[in-house]
Design a protein around this nucleic acid. Structure first.
Lengths: 108, 108
DNA sequence: ATTATATTCAACCATATGGTTTAATGTAAA
DNA sequence: TTTACATTAAACCATATGGTTGAATATAAT
């Protein structure tokens, strides 16, 4: 009955880290190279690169090479997937409230 | 510049686990006692209780005692918070596209 | 061809996470 | 007041995570 969806695992796991959310905030406004992103944080370059790998596996960002640099940009489809997953709860929840309403009306 | 929001950490971390997502799916349809929930999974009772603690800390569920049982229900506000956080990206993204449009039009 | 820059990879470490089992606690029922 | 049931807490274990440093690789610039 449990629908194992590793894609959602990676998506939400990515979003659970404040550094990764901050990276997404920057990327939604403009693309950056890996170095440019790394310069904003106090941790090592390698640590930021690891965060980017996590985001990339979750399909939240894409990288493309330009010369010796790598340009990182956001991939909003995954954000939408996460958003739609949550919206589905709201739909179920509203359905439940409707059913409750009907039951109450039947008491009249 | 990084907005450390531990509330979002807990929210998305909770959603990153398939068991916890499944629990939320069940709860959005009806409330359950802890035992009822635990009966659906192959892991130990204690493990399920731990998952519920994670969800409770994230404010995704609430428990209330009824006799010797504890009744678990969903707390949809937190789901909405997560949903709104993601929607904010979509807004920023659309803004960025608009700006891009304007720049292109200025070339005419 | 050498050197500098940007990135990736590997080894390592401390802590967090998700599971276990067993003991302790709170509440209801006999 | 025992006894049974539901839950919580504690101790423990294996693996994952997020960080480090240093070496290796890829591309550009001299």
């Amino acid at each position: 009955m449990v629908e194992y969806n590793p894609y959602l695992d990676g998506l939400f796991k990515s979003l659970a880290d404040p550094i990764r959310r901050d990276i997404l905030q920057r990327l939604v406004q403009a693309q950056h190279t890996i170095s440019q992103l790394a310069a904003h944080y106090e941790m090592s370059f390698a640590a930021v690169a690891k965060h980017l790998n996590v985001l990339e596996k979750a399909k939240l960002i894409v990288k493309r090479r330009k010369g010796k640099e790598q340009i990182v940009s956001i991939a909003p489809e995954a954000l939408r997937d996460a958003s739609e997953y949550l919206a589905q709860f709201e739909a179920l929840w509203n359905y439940r409230l409707d059913v409750l309403d009907q039951i109450l009306q039947e008491d009249d």
